[in-house]
Design a protein around this nucleic acid. Structure first.
Length: 584
RNA sequence: GCCCCUAUAGCUCAGUUGGUUAGAGCAGCGGACUCUUAAUCCGCGUGUCCCAGGUUCGAGUCCUGGUGGGGGCACCA
């Protein structure tokens, strides 16, 4: 691999450390007494601060800490740097004469670099400039950093009192591809994932308290179902059979209701083979919950209480700040949330009552309203689809405060029970907040004959070329339903989008530690010396990469893999190379 | 799949109408400095200007095609 000058210098430092008898990757543990933030919290000037003239503190405050060296300010025989651990940063004061003979000049000044993990032991004090710091009496290298972390600097603006950051890494690609560096540099990014952890834990704690059981159902499924989406497919060798990564876990959780569990939930990774966007990642986390003997009305009450608990856990209060189109709103996740039937919401927004006298308006009337709103209408769109479009255009973006939208047209909701009093509608709600859907819930369909009819309709769609419809009927699921599934309320919550809401992030990539990106392109710099490699290009074609004695060769073949391989083999025969590898 | 924006040093960015040897700050290297904090001061420029073609006497700059990334649309019960 080609090393940058700075990478080479750090490797030189590594060798020099070993030569000086300092192990760069020691095995010894370094048990700490404090986190950086604990030291800052606990410091008390009256008891811990030494006197001006070398007078010892009335109660010296000794601490052993560990972290990453972030900055280094050397002033001859003394130096300062900041040490960052998970809790925050604390300044370290180093003096030549506090350390063993020669260590400061030959090791600390020359061979330790920003990014190195250090252990510090010493007394806590406040500097003349007023910053609580640790005076290092023992300084130990815990792990050497061989790759320079980008350096960002901070300063407090004297007028506003706000901390400004300079040279901040702004390239999103760098941040997502090298999340480890992003996290090391940006405590606030770590905070997002701590909040995500609290969101999940709060939900689990809340549901556990109700007596519900968290379960694990198969990720690898012989048939996929429970949603409409294209699946990822894979293959099991020993059984020689295709398998699908789940697109939902609904059908397995319902089997558990049949089996006698009265409240089950799963926080699951689902996988959908679809596009990427600010709101979509091919693998994402979904909460699904099913509770026997309850209905969607009851479920709204549970969601209100659960999300209030989540908001408090995530932000400290039920009021959550949310930036939408550059405007900051305060979303109140305090029960009860507003409830509005979808047709009432549409009527308020458009003036058109499309559900009258116990029936949904005619398709032509609905299409007319859609056209008035500037929506494109084509003949394939049914009444249900048009209602959905009108809602999405005219209502959804206006629902900033958490709002339950209820009683959808039956065509939109094949898995929900028909409404007990309103013909043509189903018992379903979505929770909308900040103009986006957060939850989807039904009174669940438990009639096995009706369910069979609907799955058969799906299979017909699949045969007709709809690649999001499930091709095969899940006979085992129907067999389970035939034994009898209790009436139940079901809920789905997108955990990623909920976390976006609670942390005020605008992209799903900012709440996923490792969002999916296209693979990095390999260049000749990235392969070991003395090797030749043939790589297939995402853009089509093949490239032969060769590297010997630091010299690179790169040759692209658009048309033929055979030509590329023949060229690589010819190159190998010319000598100087000892290896030819193929990579996909 | 379509549209817009974008890619220059490890990081953040300049780079004029196409002009000869591509710049700055930070980081790094050498030196000074025992309370600094975007430390300071002196000296040093480290590069596949995303890739491949093309136009031109001459391309970081213009054109065509491609790739990565961001945003929007479409898709997503």
């Amino acid at each position: 691999m080609a090393l940058t000058e700075q990478e080479q210098i750090r490797r030189d430092h590594l060798d020099a450390l070993r030569a000086a008898g300092v192990e760069p990757f020691p095995a010894d543990a370094w048990p700490t007494t404090h986190a950086a933030a604990d030291v800052l919290d606990a410091f008390d000037d009256a008891r811990h601060q030494p006197g001006e003239d070398g007078e010892p503190a009335t109660e010296p405050f000794r601490a052993t800490i560990a972290g990453r060296m972030m900055t280094k300010r050397v002033m001859g025989k003394a130096a300062f740097f900041h040490l960052a651990d998970e809790s925050g940063q604390i300044q370290i004061y180093v003096r030549r004469d506090d350390l063993p003979e020669g260590f400061y000049n030959t090791v600390f000044k020359k061979l330790l670099d920003p990014g190195d993990w250090l252990g510090i032991e010493g007394e806590v004090f406040r500097t003349k400039m007023g910053e609580v710091s640790v005076r290092a009496e023992n300084l130990v290298l815990l792990a050497k950093s061989l790759r320079p972390l980008p350096v960002e600097k901070e300063a407090v603006d004297p007028e506003t009192g706000e901390t400004r950051r300079f040279n901040e890494v702004s390239d999103p690609e760098f941040r997502y591809r090298q999340r480890y560096a992003d996290l090391a540099l940006h405590p606030e990014v770590r905070d997002v994932f701590r909040t995500r952890h609290r969101v999940v834990r709060t939900i689990q704690g809340f549901l556990d308290e109700q007596g519900y059981v968290e379960v694990e159902t198969p990720v690898l499924q012989p048939l996929y179902g429970g949603a409409a989406a294209r699946p990822f497919t894979t293959h099991h060798n020993a059984l020689d059979m295709p398998l699908f990564l789940r697109i939902a876990d609904e059908l397995y959780l319902k089997r558990l209701l049949v089996g006698g569990f009265e409240g089950v939930y799963e926080i699951a990774k689902d996988f959908r083979n679809e596009g990427l966007s600010r709101f979509h990642n091919p693998e994402f986390t979904m909460l699904e919950l099913y509770v026997a003997f309850r209905d969607y009305d009851w479920m709204m009450g549970l969601v209100e209480r659960m999300l209030e608990a989540v908001a408090v856990a995530a932000t400290g209060s039920a009021d959550v700040a949310r930036t939408i189109d550059g405007q900051t709103h305060t979303l109140r996740f305090a029960a009860p949330f507003r409830r509005v039937p979808i047709f009432d919401a549409i009527a308020q927004a458009t003036g058109h009552h499309l559900y009258r006298d116990g029936a949904v308006a005619g398709r032509d009337e609905i299409a007319g309203v859609a056209r008035q709103l500037g929506l494109e209408v084509d003949d394939s769109m049914g009444a249900g689809k048009l209602i959905d479009e009108i809602f999405g255009e005219a209502v959804e973006p206006t629902l900033i405060q958490p709002t339950f939208v209820t009683d959808y047209p039956v065509e939109l909701s094949p898995l929900a029970k028909r409404h007990r009093t309103k013909p043509g509608l189903v018992e379903r709600f979505e929770l909308i907040a900040g103009g986006k859907e957060l939850c989807n819930a039904f009174s669940e369909l438990n009639d096995p004959l009706d369910q069979r009819a609907r799955l058969e309709e799906q299979a017909r769609l699949a045969a007709g070329g709809d690649d999001e419809a499930t091709r095969e009927i899940d006979e085992d699921f129907l067999r389970a339903l035939e034994y009898g599934m209790p009436p139940a309320a079901g809920l789905g919550v997108g955990i990623d989008r909920l976390t976006m809401m609670m942390t005020n992030q605008s992209s799903i990539r900012d709440v996923l530690l490792f969002p999916l990106l296209r693979p990095e392109t390999i260049s000749a710099d990235d392969i070991p010396d003395g090797t030749i490699r043939v790589v297939e290009l995402a853009s089509g074609g093949w490239r032969v990469l060769a590297r010997v004695n630091g010299g690179n060769k790169s040759e692209t073949f658009r048309e033929s893999e055979v030509e590329a391989v023949e060229f690589a083999e010819w190159l190998l025969e010319q000598g100087g190379y000892d290896r030819l590898t193929m990579s996909s």
